[in-house]
Design a protein around this nucleic acid. Structure first.
Lengths: 257, 257
DNA sequence: AAAATAGTGTCTGTAAGACAATATAAC
DNA sequence: GTTATATTGTCTTACAGACACTATTTT
C-alpha cells in the first residue's frame, strides 16, 4: 500500500505520472478501440439479432456482430451509429451503450477493446434492411440463453451458428440487459410500429422474457403507467373484434413520435 | 444506404475493410484508453466518493477521479483494480463497470476514452485508506444530484468542489446507477462491515436513495429474500435493547464472506 | 349464427404501509 | 424504573393473478 505517489520505479506509477503530467502518450503502445452493435428485434415471437459472416481469417465463416474501429475524431456513440448506418442501412433507431469488453486476448490479431452498443428496431424495418442486402453473408439469428455460458444463435434454417471471438458472451449480456429493461422501461415500443395493439406489445414482452405474462394485469399495468395512449383507431381485418391501436405516449404523454 | 460493402472511396468503409481484413491498424491514429474509478461509500448518512486534486495543468486544482491508462497487456477491468490498489490502497472490494465515456473533446490534451468503473467499500476501510495518505490533495466528497446536470461534490468543510473534465457527469451516472441497483440488488452489503444490524442496512439504503424507507416492510422484504442471515450475536453498548447482527448470505445462503 | 379475440368487472391472495404492543439492555 | 430502540403481531390498502362475462368484427 503506497503512501504518496512518486517516481519510485513502479511501472504503474510511472504510467500514472505521465498521464497526470500530460506527457505525450503517443509513444507508448495503446489498444485499438472498436465498437460492435447488437441489433435486436422481435420477429415471429422470437428475439433475433443481425449477424455477419466473416469473409476473412481469423475465424473465417463464423458469424460476428457488425462493428468498426472508433475514429480519432469521432465519439464512441457516433461510431456505433455509423456502424448501423453504413453496415445495416438504418438511421434514427434506439441505440444505447451496453458494455465494454476489454479482455487482453479477445481478438487474436491485436489488442482491441470494444465498446458494445445495442440497438432496437421494429421487425419490418430490419427485414427491409436485410433483404436490401440480399447475400448469404448476413442473417437474422434467433437468440436463446442457456443457464450459463454464451448465447446460442440459430439461423433461419434452424441450424446453430458458430459465433466469432467473444460475440457469444456479448450476446448473452445484451439479452440479459434487454430482459432486465423490459420489466420497467418503455423499451418494447422501439420494437413495434408507431401504432400497435396491447396484444402486440405483450407478445414482444413475452418474446424477450421467454415466459408468458398475465394478460389482464399487463393491460392494467401498461395503461395505468400512462406509457401508451389510444389512437382512437382500430385494427381491421383481424377476424374478430378489432382491438384499439395505441401509440407510445413519450415522456409527458403528448409526444408525437 | 449501401447495398454491399466495397472499396468505393467512403472513408468509413475503408476503415471497416481494414478491420475485417486484419490489416495492421497500428499506422492509423487511435484514441488512448483510460479507466477512472468512482469509489463510493456511505459515511454519516451521506453518499461520499474519493476525489484527488489535480497537481498539474490542465485544470490544476480541480478535483478528479482516480484513474490511469489501460496497459497494452492488461484487461480493462484489471486496470481499474490496479487504480484502486495503487492510488487508494484498497484490494478485494466490489468493483463493476459503470459506463464508457467517449466524447471527442472530454480531455483537452488528447483523445482519451475512459472506461469508468464504480467500487463500493465500507466507510471504515475508506477512512483508513484516506488517513494513511494524509495530504490535502485527496478528500472524501459528499455527493448530491440536482434535477439535471452534473453531480455536486461537497468537501469535508462544506465547500463545493470544482470537478475536472467531465467528472461531474460521470459522478451523476454513478449515483444514478447505485440508486437503481440498491432497489433490487444486494449491493448495500458492500458498504457495511461483515456484521451489521438491519437498521444499519436500512440507513445505507436511505443514504443512497436520499429518501426514507418504511422500517417494517424493509425488514420483511430483506429477511424474506433470504439475503441476510442472523449471526446469533447482538450488538452491545447501544443503550437500549441490543439488535441482532446479520451477515450477507451470499448467493446460496451459506457463503462465509 | 359461429368463431375468435378484445375489453370489463369482480374476487382473491400477496405484499407493503401503518400502527400498536411487547422485549430488553444501558443508564 | 426510565429510556430508547428492537422485534412481533395485526389491520388496512394496493395491486397482481385468475376468471367470468360482455362486445364486436370476420367468416
Amino acid at each position: 500500500m503506497q503512501q504518496r505517489p512518486g517516481p519510485h520505479g513502479d511501472p504503474d506509477e510511472l504510467e500514472d505520472l505521465r498521464f497526470l503530467a500530460g506527457y505525450d502518450a503517443s509513444r507508448y503502445p495503446r489498444p485499438s478501440v472498436a465498437t460492435d452493435v447488437v441489433l435486436l428485434s422481435v420477429r415471429d415471437g422470437q428475439l433475433v439479432t443481425l449477424l455477419l459472416r466473416r469473409p476473412e481469417p481469423p475465424q473465417v465463416g463464423r458469424w460476428s456482430l457488425p462493428g468498426s474501429f472508433v475514429g480519432i475524431k469521432e465519439s464512441v456513440d457516433d461510431a456505433a451509429q455509423r456502424v448501423l448506418e453504413h453496415k445495416v442501412g438504418l438511421r434514427g433507431v434506439f441505440i444505447e451503450q451496453l458494455y465494454t469488453f476489454g479482455a487482453v486476448d479477445r481478438d487474436p490479431r491485436t489488442r482491441v477493446i470494444s465498446v458494445v452498443h445495442y440497438a432496437l428496431v421494429e421487425a419490418a424495418r430490419l427485414d427491409a434492411a436485410v433483404t436490401a442486402r440480399a447475400d448469404g453473408d448476413l442473417c437474422l439469428a434467433a437468440l436463446t440463453l442457456d443457464a450459463t455460458g454464451p448465447a446460442r444463435a440459430t439461423g433461419p434454417d434452424g441450424t446453430a451458428l458458430e459465433l466469432a471471438f467473444d460475440h457469444g458472451e456479448i450476446l448473452r449480456v445484451a439479452v440479459e440487459r434487454i430482459r432486465g429493461k423490459v420489466a420497467y422501461a418503455p423499451i418494447g415500443f422501439e420494437l413495434l410500429p408507431p401504432a400497435f395493439t396491447l396484444t402486440d406489445l405483450r407478445a414482444v414482452h413475452e418474446a424477450i422474457l421467454g415466459t408468458p405474462r398475465n394478460k389482464d394485469s399487463f393491460r392494467r399495468t401498461v395503461l395505468g403507467q400512462g406509457l401508451v395512449v389510444p389512437t382512437g383507431q382500430r385494427a381491421t381485418g383481424v377476424g374478430h373484434r378489432p382491438p384499439e391501436l395505441y401509440r407510445f405516449a413519450g415522456r409527458h404523454g403528448t409526444e408525437a413520435r
